[in-house]
Nucleic acid binder design. Structure first.
Length: 686
RNA sequence: GCACCCGUAGCUCAGCUGGAUAGAGCGACGGUUUCCUAAACCGUAGGCCACAGGUUCGAGUCCUGUCGGGUGCGCCA
């Protein structure tokens, strides 16, 4: 089942969109203006058609109140060996003839032009009302595979899982909107030690009546994971020694700094740097956030004593922790040896986990073409290893089989088989990549996975290339930044459904105050707004940047948020309802107010935003375009509150009212479409 | 130690493959509900774009160095 985003239609209106205008040949209205400007420049200077794309690329948005498009003349002037300002004047004079431009002005080395409002209205308004506005055909006939969400089963779905899920789903929607055939795969981490932890932990703590209770399983897993975390306990045992070494090293460095005060500048500088580095390390170890604090003072000895005590406790704990880790591994081994009881238990836990995840996915309105897992490739990995041995070959390193290919300096080897004979992450990913190419014959294969794994994917793609797969360079890692501050003060993870729930609780409190929402639509609106706010809040960030999780920010519905965009949409719907629907015919050229003009420009930019967002795998570009439209809409509608003549439902002119209704219908259609691309819904009343 | 990413307003972040006077949201301050939804609108304040050099007609953007932060780095996924 492939998710296709829902085409918005108003429940109370007939679809009148396609009645009186043909679908424009060019999917972006504003592209017409840019092309016209670039072509005019080219023909004025006697340049060939080939020069037009480059000229078009140079077009910028001018400063506020200086028009709609700006052409900087620097580059062209240089090739023509002319003065940029002179060239700007020449071009401006030539462009002035064209009635596409309401104004043409040479300002220094720039040519600034303003769209003729009449042409803008004719181009944008009817187009924005059409089904498919914002979409394009650039991917027609091509297939993209998108690996996204892909959580580890048996572990809880924490807040940060929202990133891959919602970015991936949006990128899938963007490709659909650009004509691609999309295969969205949720590639679950459904094999590994975590099942051993869960299964053995359950024997100890599990409530047999709650075997199918996902929440209970998460509790068991979290507890079992902690109690079998050998690394944590060993670190605790080592901690006092390391800490004391660091402290004495730092003290020695301090002493050296004093005793060698007479040394030359370079040496002193080096020593100072070393001291600072050590201080930083110690601060990090002690958890001091103040970057200026002296890590040796303020209870440093107390801290060391605490570490000692903790280490003693850890030593006592170690045998049991190791035993539990062994138990978990043994369970995994049973699974790999096809022990029926173990596999049955794995199946049961797996199913419960997936069902729980699917509740959250359903709440977010996210679906996949298929839900698969690493376990699927478990019995196909011998063939994969053989294929690697054949080409590019493997070499032995400390008992492990390492892919024999080119490595960057200092890069760790890519291991396909461990010295114990088990396979690894990359082995399974090589098998999965081949399988996907055989199934889908893709032009693109995207992996929407955190930036942390960049190295893994670099090696994966290089390995595929070395194996002779010419499609290796069609694979891309679509990386995204981390979410910081994901633990609560008690050190507990923030769960995704808990955040969604809190956002919905807040949405409910606000929605219950609204007289606009019919009681039967209340629950639906609450979900759309609450869940939308959280997802939109993630998508608004540039994909690659890290950001910090902040409950106050997630639950803030003011400013440029999903509820803001949804609110503009709901107001537009409200006006359409009140106006009795959209007339079949209207004359957009009657729209001449500055507020209307700004709105048309924002609306016209939407298809460009979708195209660019798809090409750059960057949903935040759509977010910005929607905010732009919502903001222009809010300003426009508020202006109508002050001045009755500026209202959409203006009293004294049916023709003007019709034109404004068309514009507002375009807004509502476009906002709903854009929200849909971002996996958010658009309630008709708020 | 090696590699990659980042440093822009009090906070969170934009700034489009180098272009004019660096922009939003939050927060602060001041206005706007007899007015199609105040989850809103309008306005004000707030910046040595980490620092120092370099390339260029032009640098927040490119190069080098320094300082400060993050992440990854052999048998986990």
């Amino acid at each position: 089942m492939t998710r296709s985003f829902v085409r918005p239609s108003l429940s109370f209106l007939p679809n009148t969109a396609a009645l009186s205008y043909e679908r424009p040949a060019m999917s972006s209205p504003l592209a017409r203006f840019r092309l016209a400007l670039a072509s005019a420049v080219a023909s004025r200077q006697g340049l060939s058609e080939d020069a037009v794309p480059e000229l078009e690329r140079q077009i910028r948005r001018p400063n506020a109140d200086q028009g709609d498009l700006a052409f900087p003349c620097f580059t062209l002037a240089k090739t023509l060996r002319q003065n940029p300002a002179e060239l700007a004047k020449t071009l401006a004079a030539a462009l002035a003839e064209d009635d596409r431009w309401a104004s043409v002005e040479a300002v220094g080395p720039y040519v600034n032009v303003t769209y003729a409002t009449r042409l803008l209205a004719e181009t944008v308004v009817p187009a924005a009302r059409l089904d498919g506005y914002g979409e394009n055909e650039s991917g027609r006939g091509q297939t993209v595979v998108i690996d996204f969400s892909s959580p580890n089963i048996a572990k809880p779905l924490a807040f940060h899982h929202i990133r891959s899920t919602v970015i991936g789903a949006s990128i899938a929607n963007l490709h659909r909107a650009s004509g691609w055939t999309v295969a969205g795969i949720n590639y679950l981490g459904d094999w590994g030690k975590q099942f051993g932890l869960l299964a053995t932990g359950f024997q100890r703590y599990g409530d047999p009546d709650k075997r199918a209770d996902a929440k209970h399983l998460v509790e068991v897993y979290v507890k079992a994971n902690r109690e079998a975390d050998v690394g944590r306990v060993k670190d605790a045992i080592e901690a006092p020694k390391m800490a004391r070494e660091l402290v004495s090293e730092l003290q020695a460095a301090h002493a050296k700094l004093v005793s060698e005060a007479g040394a030359d500048f370079e040496t002193q500088k080096k020593m100072g740097k070393q001291v600072k580095a050590l201080e930083k390390k110690l601060r990090a170890l002690r958890g001091i956030s103040d970057g200026d604090a002296d890590p040796l003072s303020d209870g440093c000895t107390d801290w060391l004593h605490q570490l000692e005590a903790a280490a003693e406790a850890a030593k006592a704990e170690l045998p049991q922790v190791e035993a539990r880790d062994q138990e978990a591994r043994a369970f995994l081994k049973k699974m790999e040896d096809k022990d029926e009881a173990a596999l049955a238990e794995w199946q049961e836990f797996r199913r419960t986990s997936i069902e729980e995840f699917e509740k959250v996915y359903a709440r977010m309105g996210i679906t996949f073409s298929s839900i698969e897992g690493e376990s699927f490739y478990q019995d196909k990995l011998d063939a994969t290893v053989e294929r690697v041995r054949d080409k590019p070959g493997t070499r032995e390193s400390e008992g492990a089989e390492v892919i024999d290919m080119t490595y960057d300096k200092g890069e760790p080897p890519a291991i396909v088989k461990t010295r114990d004979g088990t396979t690894l992450y990359i082995t399974r990913d090589i098998a999965a990549a081949q399988d996907r190419f055989q199934r889908f014959d893709f032009q693109r294969s995207l992996y929407v996975v955190a930036q942390d794994q960049a190295l893994h994917f670099r090696q994966l793609f290089r390995a595929l290339g070395s194996m002779g797969f010419e499609w290796a360079d069609r694979c891309q890692h679509v990386a995204f930044g981390r979410v910081h501050g994901m633990s609560t003060r008690e050190g507990r993870l923030v769960f995704l459904d808990e955040v969604l729930e809190k956002a919905c609780a807040k949405a409910r409190a606000i929605c219950e105050q609204s007289e606009k929402i019919a009681p039967e639509h209340l629950d639906d609106a609450v979900e759309a707004i609450g869940v939308g706010a959280v997802m939109f809040g993630d998508l608004r960030n540039l994909r690659t940047s890290d950001y910090t999780f902040d409950y106050d920010q997630v639950l803030d519905f003011s400013g440029h948020t999903a509820p803001y965009v949804q609110f503009s949409h709901a107001r537009a719907c409200s006006i359409l309802r009140k106006g009795g629907g959209v007339p079949a015919a209207a004359d957009p050229t009657l729209l001449t107010l500055p507020e209307e003009r700004a709105l048309m420009v924002a609306l016209g930019g939407y298809p460009d935003a979708v195209k660019e967002a798809c090409d750059a795998y960057e949903p935040s570009l759509v977010v910005r375009a929607l905010i732009d439209i919502a903001q222009s809409t809010a300003s426009y509608l508020t202006a109508g509150n002050r001045d009755r003549g500026m209202r959409v439902l203006v009293e004294d002119s049916e023709a003007l009212k019709g034109a404004r209704l068309w514009l507002i219908d375009g807004v509502r259609h476009c906002l709903a479409h854009g929200l849909g691309l971002l996996c958010c819904r658009a309630p008709e009343a708020m």
